[in-house]
């Protein structure tokens, strides 16, 4: 507590510089928090789309109704399958054509009959999925099986490279924020040279001289983090309804905000970042 009040004594004297510094840190951390928020939501997407949840079983053209029904009930008995639904050619046409009159008027026989399987989430890693599809492929009245592995693999790899890019950018931004804190503490050190000189003169231990500057850095960092998270939260609430209808409709999920755990981590991380930045300045500029 004493250290904080000594740090605040410095903050009080140079409010302008400190405010600029907090604002800069806040801006930088806002970018990172926004990226984290995006990552959080993308993660949600990835859970939804990254793992194959669907399988389409194409039926041979000459399959009889009894064969189809027997196949459907056999498929729904599989442990990996949650539901199996028979889609007639005309249903398939309706889904594909939508409002398109030309397609809608095409012959239903152009569209293959299928059984759409909804898989049990988590029950289907890559290996089990190919085993399953091979087994289904050999069944009676089955012409082909689509596992959507290509698409999910693609989604996965796009998400992964997105995460990597975001991570690199976040790292750069964090380093910049650290440099800003470091520079602010350096200015503070220069402004408080007399104070440092006096402390040394009256017999302060080196750690006593250094600690308020480290605390100042930590305060700047965590202050910036709080401002950034608050700003992001406000924007999130403001745009939630729009994001909701878009994301809900297109992606089948509701947007999520950073968890309390992540927010706490963010503020602590901001403090750590600030303390590290100021430690760099103190190491370089404060001889005790």
């Amino acid at each position: 507590m004493k250290v904080l009040s000594r740090a605040m004594r410095g903050v009080r004297e140079h409010v302008r510089t400190q405010l600029v510094s907090v604002a800069t840190v806040a801006l930088a951390l806002f970018c990172v928090a926004a990226a984290a928020l995006a990552a959080e939501n993308v993660g949600e997407l990835s859970r939804r789309w990254g793992a194959p949840m669907r399988m389409t079983v194409y039926l041979s053209d000459h399959a009889t109704a009894e064969q189809i029904e027997a196949l459907r009930s056999a498929l729904s008995g599989l442990s990996e399958v949650r539901a199996a639904r028979y889609v007639t050619p005309s249903e398939a046409r309706a889904v594909v054509a939508g409002d398109d009159a030309v397609l809608a008027s095409a012959g239903a026989e152009l569209f293959p009959a299928t059984i759409e399987l909804t898989l049990v989430p988590g029950a289907t890693d890559r290996a089990r999925l190919s085993v399953l599809s091979e087994r289904v492929r050999r069944l009676n009245a089955v012409s082909d099986v689509e596992t959507y592995q290509g698409i999910t693999a693609q989604v996965q790899s796009i998400l992964a490279s997105g995460r990597l890019a975001a991570g690199v950018i976040a790292l750069v931004i964090l380093l910049c924020a650290m440099a800003v804190v470091s520079n602010t503490v350096r200015l503070s050190l220069h402004a408080r040279m007399r104070e440092v000189e006096v402390l040394r003169l009256v017999g302060a231990a080196p750690s006593y001289v250094r600690s308020p500057f480290l605390a100042e850095g930590a305060l700047l960092g965590s202050g910036g983090a709080v401002v950034a998270v608050a700003l992001l939260g406000a924007l999130f609430v403001l745009f939630r309804s729009r994001m909701d209808s878009f994301m809900g409709g297109a992606l089948g999920m509701r947007p999520v905000f950073l968890s309390g755990f992540m927010i706490a981590g963010f503020v602590l991380g901001g403090a750590g970042l600030g303390a590290t930045g100021s430690a760099l300045a103190v190491r370089r500029w404060l001889k005790v």
Binding site: V202, G203, A205
Partner: peptide, 10 residues
Amino acid sequence: TPESVPFLRR
């Protein structure tokens, strides 16, 4: 030692 200097100064 450098650690003792503050005690001297007090």
